[in-house]
Amino acid sequence: MKDEGERVFPDAHQDVETAREIPDTPQTRAPAYRLAFTDDDFLCRDELRPVRLQLELMKPELLMQEYGIDSTVVLFGGARIPEPARKDTARTQALAELSKYYAQAREFARLITLTSQKNGGRENVIVTGGGPGVMEAGNRGAADAGGVSIGLNIVLPREQQPNAYVTPDLCFNFHYFGIRKMHFLMRANAVTMFPGGFGTMDEMFEALTLIQTKRMKPVPFLLFGRAFWEKVINFEALAEAGTISEEDLNLFRYVETAEEAVEIIEAWKH
C-alpha cells in the first residue's frame, strides 16, 4: 500500500527540475522539446487563448480560496482622482474638487475592514482595481484598519502598476478584462462606484446589467457623489424613453459619505 500523501505520478515541479538536467543537444534545444506548460511561446499562441482564459479564471480563484476570502465589497473609481494632499497636481480643477472622494473611499474601506476583522476577516474584504486614485484609497483604507485587501490589476500602457497598499498575496494581474470583471463580482456583497471615467462606467454598467437581468443577485449598489453621476449620466431620461424600466432606477442609490454607505450595507436584507 502506498503511504498517505504519496503520489502515483511525479509532481510537475519535479519534472521541471529534471528537464533542466537533460544534456544540451540540438534536440533538447529545439522549442518542440520544451514541456508545454513551461513554454511561454506556446502558451501565448492564439490557439491557446481558451487555456489562458481558464488560467486567469482559476489562479485568483484558487489563491483567494486558500487565503480564506469568502466575500468582498467592491470599490470602483477613477485612477486619476488625487488624494486631497496632492489635489494641486490634478490636471483640471474638476479633478481637484473630486479629491474629496479619495478621502471618502479611504474612510469607507477602513470602516468596512474594521467590521470584517471583527467577523474573522473572511467576509466583506475590500477589492479594487489595484491601481492609483480611488483604487489606491480603497486599499489604503483597508491597510489603515490593519486588514487585508485585494487588487485586480490589468496590463495597460499606463496605470497598470499596483499601488503600495494592496496585500501582496492578494495582488493579481490580468490580460483579459472580462475575466477580471468576473472576479470583481463573483464574491461581491456590495458594489460601490466612485467618480471615474470610461473604465469605471464600463464596470458600473456591466454590474448593473447583470443585476437588472437577474444574472447576479441584488446587492447594495451605491454611487458616491450624486451631483457627479447626475451630471454625466441621465438615468431618468433612460426610464422616460422606456429603454429601462422605472423600477431599474431602484437598483442603485446615491450616497455622499462613507458612514452613509456603511449604514446601508449593514442594514441590507438579502
Rank of each mutant, 00 (worst) to 15 (best):
7 R>K: 14
10 P>N: 09
12 A>N: 13
19 A>V: 11
33 Y>N: 15
41 D>Q: 09
41 D>L: 01
41 D>A: 10
42 F>L: 12
44 C>F: 13
45 R>P: 01
51 V>Y: 09
54 Q>T: 07
55 L>M: 11
56 E>M: 03
63 L>M: 08
64 M>F: 11
77 G>H: 00
81 I>A: 00
91 R>H: 06
93 Q>K: 07
93 Q>M: 04
94 A>D: 12
99 S>H: 04
100 K>T: 15
102 Y>N: 08
103 A>F: 06
106 R>N: 03
109 A>G: 10
113 T>Q: 02
115 T>K: 04
122 R>T: 07
123 E>L: 03
125 V>K: 01
134 V>L: 08
136 E>D: 01
136 E>T: 00
137 A>L: 05
145 A>C: 05
146 G>D: 12
148 V>M: 11
148 V>I: 07
149 S>A: 09
152 L>T: 07
156 L>K: 10
161 Q>Y: 10
163 N>V: 01
166 V>S: 05
170 L>D: 01
187 R>Q: 06
187 R>H: 10
196 G>K: 01
196 G>W: 02
202 D>R: 03
203 E>L: 06
208 L>R: 08
211 I>T: 11
215 R>D: 05
216 M>H: 12
225 G>P: 07
228 F>N: 12
239 A>T: 14
248 D>A: 09
250 N>K: 15
253 R>T: 15
258 A>W: 08
268 W>V: 11
